[in-house]
């Protein structure tokens, strides 16, 4: 890789991916112009696992294809490892695992690695063998792809994506359609990549997976970034559930607030409120009303909640507009 930065701007050190107002517009006869990716500003730091989340059709794969130079942006700019997107030199140090990839079925696992290796000019049998061992396919190296299970195909895909010791990996729905055991195997491999110092860009709609391994995420919907940040930051702002007994309806009515859900039945009050709400005030009030506090349970937010929140907000917002 040439050391000189390409024309068109240099990024601050540390950013593996950065996009500025990256846009992809498709023209459709029925719907007119559609921004599949809409003024996207994305920032992925080096060495992190980045989750790129969104429902189906949100523009995830389109974004990745633009970052890889497979399709061309309609507007905006993007940089991958400090180079303008489409720069062929970058392709030497990145790698891509498409969603449900297809490999030439007549080839064996080993032949696949040889083929993709040849595209880099790599012909290192030991390396191929090590990679097969790494993805736990050493015993199946001479089987053809048509004899591979889905999980095995995904693993050979990961193996080929590691051929060039990539600094940056794009994984599109890496666990899509796999059974739980295969999930775990893939997840472990991805975590291993981070330990090896690689940047991993995962596009997915399987949130529990992402939540477990990602450092940062971005949520994209209808081509636009809705949320972006560290997972801890995004999930901050959980809820607290307070349960108390021996209270009357009058008290229950006093605690109702817009951010809280209150239920009252046979003297038992259950309040579900924001972490930032006045929990102490509520507890004081219960004590003053001679109520008995049964439990105070803080409930941490999950990525799923955030996701649904974001998407539905967007939906209602869209409807209101």
């Amino acid at each position: 890789m040439a050391s000189e930065p390409p024309q068109g701007g240099v990024l601050p050190l540390g950013a593996a991916i950065e996009t500025r107002q990256l846009t992809k517009t498709y023209k459709s006869r029925a719907l007119g112009k559609i921004n599949v990716v809409d003024h996207l500003d994305l920032q992925v730091e080096e060495g992190e696992i980045f989750g790129f989340l969104g429902p189906n059709g949100a523009g995830k794969t389109t974004t990745i294809k633009m970052l890889l130079g497979i399709i061309y942006p309609s507007a905006g700019e993007g940089y991958v490892l400090g180079r303008e997107i489409g720069d062929m030199d970058v392709h030497r140090v990145i790698s891509y695992l498409p969603e449900r990839p297809y490999y030439y079925e007549h080839m064996t696992g080993m032949e696949i690695l040889k083929f993709y290796g040849a595209l880099f000019g790599i012909n290192d049998k030991d390396k191929f063998q090590r990679l097969l061992e790494k993805v736990n396919l050493a015993g199946d190296a001479t089987k053809t792809i048509s004899q591979y299970s889905k999980g095995m195909q995904q693993r050979i895909g990961l193996a080929q994506s590691l051929l060039n010791d990539p600094k940056l990996l794009f994984l599109d729905e890496p666990t899509g359609g796999l059974d739980p055991i295969a999930h775990t195997e893939i997840r472990d491999l991805i975590l291993q990549f981070r330990d090896e110092g690689r940047t991993v860009f995962i596009s997915s709609h399987e949130l529990s997976e992402v939540e477990r391994i990602c450092d940062r995420v971005a949520i994209i919907n209808k081509g636009k970034i809705e949320r972006q940040g560290r997972l801890e930051d995004l999930l901050r702002g959980g809820r607290i559930e307070v349960i108390a007994d021996g209270l009357n309806q009058g008290f229950a009515d006093t605690v109702r607030a817009p951010e809280s859900t209150v239920s009252f039945h046979n003297g038992r009050l259950i309040v579900d409120m924001s972490e930032e709400g006045d929990v102490n005030g509520l507890l004081d009030g219960i004590r003053d009303a001679k109520g008995q506090i049964i439990s105070v349970v803080p409930r941490r937010r999950r990525l799923e909640d955030l996701f649904i929140e974001t998407i539905s907000e967007k939906k209602s917002g869209g409807e209101a507009a």
Partner: peptide, 10 residues
């Protein structure tokens, strides 16, 4: 989609 794996290589 084989073309993607190929074109994402150099």
């Amino acid at each position: 989609r084989t073309i993607y794996t190929i074109l994402s290589k150099p």
